[in-house]
């Protein structure tokens, strides 16, 4: 009884029990699924929108400005969402605008991720003065209001799509840096990273094989949120007249241009605003749905 090795009654019936229930697969509720549907719809529109749109974004075709929804211009066509302040088809412009607004925002977010994640992980891995100096500069950038920075950049470099992408990318790289650095620091203290270091692995291996794979999921969730911020940021710049320049269609400037119509009872400003809202709300719904499945369950046990 005292000596474990003396026990020859090896039975296979009592297998070692699993530690925890098998890992739950990521399942979305209907709300999350709805979000995915809407986001996928707009992403498809980024690619096919301009091809299926009845008119070109710059075509001035209708008889009248601020035509109501479901009106028709004889000989030209049907205006599902009416027309805007200079007699352009609103529905077509929204489809074209998807490409501009989402395309620019997506590229800028990618850029922000490229810069923010590289520097953030570098700061976490290198530590020391690299980390301190990068973090202080980053704090300084974050402390500047983003719209102000955008305003400054547009005034300095002129308003073009590359400027917009670079500006939004640079501004949001700062917040990505913070998150990537925090994630990186959490992972760097894990034993498996230490094991890799002691094994003599290169920095490259540690970053790409040990740290990044473990930061991928939280970064992906954050990408969604960041994309929403960038869409809102670019729309706001456009709303101030600093963003996309006419005649290109983008949702933010479309709201501004048609704002006056509200006074005449036209809803031309509402549709592009709704387009923004459906896209951003849907992304947030997905993100919420993913994070909800991992927390807050104890709170429901309160009585």
């Amino acid at each position: 009884m005292t000596d474990a090795t003396a026990n020859t009654e090896e039975t296979t019936i009592y297998d070692e029990l699993p530690d925890a229930p098998p890992k739950k697969k990521l399942t979305l509720t209907w709300v999350g699924k709805l979000g995915v549907t809407v986001v996928v719809f707009w992403l498809v529109m980024v690619f096919v929108g301009p091809y299926i749109a009845p008119f070109h974004e710059a075509d001035i075709i209708a008889y009248d400005s601020y035509m109501p929804i479901l009106s028709t211009t004889e000989g030209e066509g049907f205006h599902l969402l009416g027309t805007d302040y200079i007699e352009r088809d609103l529905f077509s412009r929204i489809l074209w605008g998807a490409r501009t607004t989402i395309g620019i925002a997506f590229t800028a977010t990618l850029l922000a991720y490229l810069v923010g994640v590289s520097l953030g992980i570098a700061a976490a891995v290198a530590g020391g003065w690299v980390d301190v100096s990068l973090s202080r500069v980053n704090d300084a950038i974050i402390s500047l209001p983003s719209i102000m920075l955008g305003l400054l950049a547009v005034n300095a470099f002129g308003s073009s799509i590359p400027t917009l992408i670079m500006t939004a990318g640079a501004i949001y790289a700062a917040s990505v840096f913070r998150i990537a650095r925090a994630l990186g620091q959490d992972i760097m203290v894990m034993d498996f990273v230490e094991a890799a270091r002691v094994r003599g692995e290169s920095m490259r291996w540690i970053i790409f094989r040990e740290v990044l794979p473990n930061a991928a999921m939280p970064l992906a969730t954050d990408f969604g949120l960041r994309l929403v911020f960038v869409v809102l940021f670019i729309s706001s710049l456009s709303f101030l007249g600093l963003g996309i320049q006419p005649p290109m269609a983008d949702w933010g400037s479309m709201v501004r241009q048609n704002l006056d119509g509200l006074g005449y009872g036209s809803y031309a400003a509402v549709w592009p605003a709704l387009a923004i809202a459906t896209f951003t709300i849907s992304i947030n719904l997905i993100v919420d749905d993913i994070s909800a499945s991992s927390g807050g369950s104890l709170a429901k046990k309160m009585i």
Partner: peptide, 22 residues
């Protein structure tokens, strides 16, 4: 709140004008 943080401020501002002023 999720909807409100997802839409641009100018959208909310415009709606306020529409409701309370217009």
């Amino acid at each position: 709140t999720l909807s409100l943080i997802s839409v641009p401020e100018f959208f909310i501002a415009t709606f306020m004008v529409l409701i309370f002023a217009v």
